[in-house]
C-alpha cells in the first residue's frame, strides 16, 4: 500500500502527542509500517505544534510535505489554515471549531482572520468543522478534544472497526481516564455533521 498521511496540528499543550501516540499504536496493530514524527522542546510552549503520522507497506520520510497529507486534524482554526497547504488534492481537514488567539493577536500586533475555514472551502478544500470542545466537556473534560477529533477522523477509516480504536484508547490512556476518553471518541464519531 502506498504511504498515507495524517497531520495533527494545534497549539502546544493541547494534547496532540496523545493523538499521534494512539494513531501509531492503532496502525501498528493493523500490521503497517509506521512513522510518527513529533516536535518537542521550545515549540511546545504555547506555540504552533505539528505531528506527522505516516503508514503504509514501507514508509521512508518521517515528515509530510506540501500536497501530501490525506488528513489534517487541527485542534484550532488558525492552525488548520496554516497547515492547509500540506493537504493533498481531495484531502480532508478535520478541525475543532475554536479560535485560540496567538500572542501577536493578544498584543494587538495582528488580527485573527476569522473567516479562514470559509476561505478554505471556497477554494475547494474539504473541511469538517466540529465543536470538539463542547463535546469533550460533555464527555467529562475539556482536555478530551483530541479524542473527539480522533472519533471524527475514525469515520474516514471504514476498514478499521470501532473496537480497534477502543483497544488503542485502552492501551494509550491512563486507566482512570479511559472511560471518559472513550466517551469523547464516541461523541466525535457519532455527532452530526456534513456528509463528506
Amino acid at each position: 500500500m502506498e504511504t498515507r498521511n495524517i497531520m495533527i496540528v494545534g497549539v502546544g499543550g493541547q494534547g496532540t502527542l496523545l493523538a499521534s501516540k494512539l494513531l501509531g499504536y492503532l496502525l501498528c496493530g493493523e500490521g503497517f509500517d509506521v512513522k510518527v514524527s513529533e516536535v518537542h522542546g521550545m515549540s511546545q510552549r504555547g506555540g504552533s505544534v505539528v505531528t506527522y503520522v505516516r503508514w503504509g507497506d514501507c514508509v521512508a520520510s518521517p515528515i509530510i510535505d506540501e500536497g501530501e497529507a490525506d488528513f489534517v486534524v487541527s485542534f484550532e482554526k488558525l492552525e488548520a489554515a496554516r497547515w492547509a497547504p500540506r493537504l493533498r488534492e481531495g484531502g480532508l481537514i478535520i478541525v475543532n471549531d475554536r479560535e485560540t488567539d496567538p500572542m501577536p493577536v493578544i498584543t494587538g500586533a495582528a488580527e485573527y482572520p476569522h473567516g479562514v475555514l470559509d476561505s478554505l472551502r471556497e477554494r475547494g478544500v474539504r473541511v469538517d468543522a466540529v465543536d470538539a470542545l463542547t463535546l469533550a466537556c460533555q464527555a467529562g473534560s475539556a482536555k478530551a478534544v483530541n479524542l473527539v477529533l480522533l472519533g471524527r477522523l475514525s469515520r474516514s477509516f471504514p476498514d478499521i472497526p470501532v473496537e480497534k480504536w477502543m483497544d488503542a484508547i485502552g492501551a494509550c490512556v491512563k486507566p482512570r481516564f479511559v472511560d471518559m476518553n472513550k466517551a469523547a471518541f464516541t461523541l466525535g464519531r457519532e455527532s452530526g455533521g456534513a456528509e463528506l
Binding site: 504555547g46 504552533s48 510535505d65 500536497g67 489554515a81 497547504p85 488534492e89 500572542m103
Partner: peptide
C-alpha cells in the same frame, strides 16, 4: 514536479512559543 497543494492564506499571524 511537486505534489499540487492549496496556496497558503496570505495573512496568518505567527504563533510563537510564549511563557505559560
Amino acid at each position: 514536479p511537486l505534489p499540487p497543494s492549496v496556496a497558503a492564506e496570505p495573512s496568518i499571524p505567527v504563533r510563537p512559543p510564549v511563557m505559560c
